Simulated scan of single mutants.
Amino acid sequence: MTAPSFDRLRRHPLIAGVALFNAFGAASGAIGLITGWLSLGDKVTDRLPWGSPVIAGVALGVIVALPNTALAIAAMFRGARCGPLSILAGTLLICWIIVQLAFIREFSFFQPFYTVIGLAQIWMGVRVLRERS
């Protein structure tokens, strides 16, 4: 199977928009955790790995912000990896929520919201792969 030619690839503005939204939110949260601007409170901070919001912030940046940034770039600039990146970013986002619930054991409306967004990213990625077949 050969890679699709650039002429057959198209931009995916919806995927790019969702990815930019996720990347911005995750990067903002990561920066807030790393700098101490965003406080989780003593109870939740104690539940983080090594009790470190810095490690949590770095993990958020690496696991959620970076893949979504890569996806946004691929979606805006006709990247051939847009479909697989969308599936990966959505899967990582859902995994982040699951791990977050396991560690902090606190519920927020953000968790179901971002779970739905992750599922939507997976769905959009599958659609991109199917349209290229």
Rank of each mutant, 00 (worst) to 15 (best):
F21R: 05
D42T: 07
A19R: 10
L92C: 11
S133R: 15
P13F: 10
F24V: 15
F113K: 08
L40G: 00
E131A: 12
I87V: 15
P112Y: 08
T2F: 12
W96R: 09
A102C: 06
V54D: 00
I15C: 08
R127D: 02
L129N: 15
A3E: 13
I73V: 15
P67M: 03
Q100M: 05
L92S: 01
L48W: 09
T45G: 03
L119W: 08
L85S: 02
F103N: 05
R127Y: 06
M124H: 12
S5P: 02
S52K: 09
L85G: 02
N22T: 13
G118L: 03
A72Q: 07
F113G: 01
G51F: 10
L119G: 15
E106N: 12
I117N: 06
G41S: 05
A70L: 15
L88H: 01
K43L: 09
A89Q: 04
Q111D: 02
A23Q: 03
S52I: 03
F21N: 07
G90T: 00
F109N: 06
R47V: 00
L33I: 04
A27F: 13
V44P: 02
R105Y: 00
R105M: 00
G32Q: 04
V54S: 01
Q121V: 01
F109S: 05
R130I: 03
A75H: 10
R132N: 09
I31E: 04
T45W: 03
F21L: 15
R105E: 00
V58A: 06
L85Y: 14
A19G: 07
R132M: 13
S5G: 05
D7W: 09
Q100T: 12
P13D: 04
L33G: 08
Q111E: 13
Q121G: 08
S108L: 08
M76H: 08
V54R: 07
V116P: 06
I55K: 07
V116I: 14
I31G: 05
A16C: 11
L9Q: 06
A30G: 12
I97M: 12
F110I: 08
I34R: 02
S52Q: 01
P67A: 03
K43I: 00
D42I: 00
A75Q: 06
A70I: 14
P67W: 10
S39L: 06
P53F: 07
V126C: 08
T69L: 15
